[in-house]
Design a protein around this nucleic acid. Sequence first.
DNA 1: ATAGACCATGTAATCGATTACAGTAAACGA
DNA 2: TCGTTTACTGTAATCGATTACATGGTCTAT
Lengths: 337, 337
Amino acid sequence: MATMAEVAREAGVSVATVSRLLNQQGTVSPNTAERVYAAIKKLSYEPNLLARNFRKSESRVILILAPNVTNPYYAHILSGIGDAAAGMGYAALIFTTGDDPARERDALEMLKKHRADGAILIASDMGCHWLLEYADRYPIVQCSEYDPEVDIPHVSIDNYQASQESMEFLIALGHRRIAMISAENAYISTRLRVNAYRDTLARHGIAPREDYIAPASHDYSFKSGKLRAKELLGMNPRPTAIFCISDTLALGAITAAKELGLRVPEDVTVVGFDDVEHTTMLHPYITTVAQPCYELGKQSAHLLYARMTQGKEIPRQTILKHQLIVRESSAPPDLLE
Amino acid sequence: MATMAEVAREAGVSVATVSRLLNQQGTVSPNTAERVYAAIKKLSYEPNLLARNFRKSESRVILILAPNVTNPYYAHILSGIGDAAAGMGYAALIFTTGDDPARERDALEMLKKHRADGAILIASDMGCHWLLEYADRYPIVQCSEYDPEVDIPHVSIDNYQASQESMEFLIALGHRRIAMISAENAYISTRLRVNAYRDTLARHGIAPREDYIAPASHDYSFKSGKLRAKELLGMNPRPTAIFCISDTLALGAITAAKELGLRVPEDVTVVGFDDVEHTTMLHPYITTVAQPCYELGKQSAHLLYARMTQGKEIPRQTILKHQLIVRESSAPPDLLE
DNA sequence: ATAGACCATGTAATCGATTACAGTAAACGA
DNA sequence: TCGTTTACTGTAATCGATTACATGGTCTAT
């Protein structure tokens, strides 16, 4: 592979001139430029990014940490980040952490080693104070999850407000015995959604029953949603609606209901969260709160970019709009029962 | 950030000694080693990968090209590649091509620029002779899709055999009017599956009807699967079974059947392909051919690694095992109709 | 006692770009 | 006309690691 020096020799100029031409720095006469371009073509020269990045001390890579890439919610965020990064001339290095802070930490070491210029963390647990050690020294943006007590810029939706709307909707339909499938994780979204669940019930004079709140596994697995739903639907009195904090869990709940011989929504209403493809794949289509996943990723990337390149102060919090989407899995409770 | 020279000064040795110690090259006395480690700790030194990679002329990055990251089939492959790469000390740079050869080509330029040491291509179209231009000069492995006429190592399953088994299964159940939802793409898998569909019918003395083969959109979208299935199920005589080349399409077909008031599998049998999570998310659970997605990705990464590091000749073709999984969406046709 | 092997370490070149600085020539302004 | 920009180009230092080669000291075998 030809080097810049060879191109320079071929064109009869110095490397400085070639470099200036390629980087649009300084000036180069049209005549010389033409000769250089000819030489580049002749030798089919390609700049060596290893050398360039080393010299400029930048990697043009952004690190992305996600629990996994198979959950469609994360996949869409990754998609948004990836597209935005590509548009800005950055490459996205995706690391999966499996929700393990140790692996998260390992991956962040990449910043110290100059393998990446900045990082976007998707779904960090609460209580991530140790993150500040990195955030103070490197550009970092959190996407979707964050800790309100930790001062790192983040992009998310208003989980409390969204859950409240969902609950208000159920109550307005006439539901009183509303259960919830949450998750055994330390995400802020989970906490806010549970808070909103309790608060909204209370505000309507309905005493929240703790045994109506069933935590699914930390990764929102379909299987565990089904399991928890079966437990909930076996209780007496049986809840007439289940508020799930993810669509996968909602799908699990619907499957559970069907296996118990219950109809959705006639016998039990199920609502989800996120609005991933699953919601409209089989009937009943799922009522859910739509999150702008792709946009969350895109915004995160743009913020990080601003922080990395212009060293700009970026807003601590960016909240994008959610939307309650009513479909087939919700209906008024059957009051005759 | 401290440099190796500073560490060397602090420890009272030369940079060569520090480097040797860190790379386990040559020998360093225990005494010296201790002093160096102390210096590293004191200065909290981290090697600069930009410098190291530049010097060694390797990026320790592998390029991954996929049409998108949201299709669960690709997501699982990516997962396998990512884990394997991390285990080998490589980082995975994921680029989405949207099935656009131009973007695929652009991404491959990264190899020339030394941004990556090798590449794994997921789902390249047939007729990708131009790929040889890169494959001849850089380590490249294709995963899942490939072109038998293009000599690039690839990892896949036996699509023909798998489809044949699926068809034999349907015929053994008693189905004669079997339709197929394929796709409008140029993948080898699509071609082999269609071929196996035709051949197997013919071998059983059933004349394939061309209008029973409906191509869905190139990305196997749920929506287009539903659309095609509605057309097929509206035909006279109506097919009693539909062989779909992806689970998403199968899900679309099941939804279509339900919307038409048909029961699955009593009125129509639907079988899928891939075995992604969707298959067991709602009843009827889908009968399908399982592909070892994660393993496909992992193997691809290992092959690429062998090729990159030992320059070894690697096998041109690696075929992993598939498995027909019979679930609820298939049953003998109702012969009373 | 001495050659040869081996160990521990240092010196300095090297990878391929970017860029500060300097120099020359032409253009310009008064 | 002379000083001063301005346009264009070249020289060489530089980024931070790796590594070929050289050096001096120890140990071993004859």
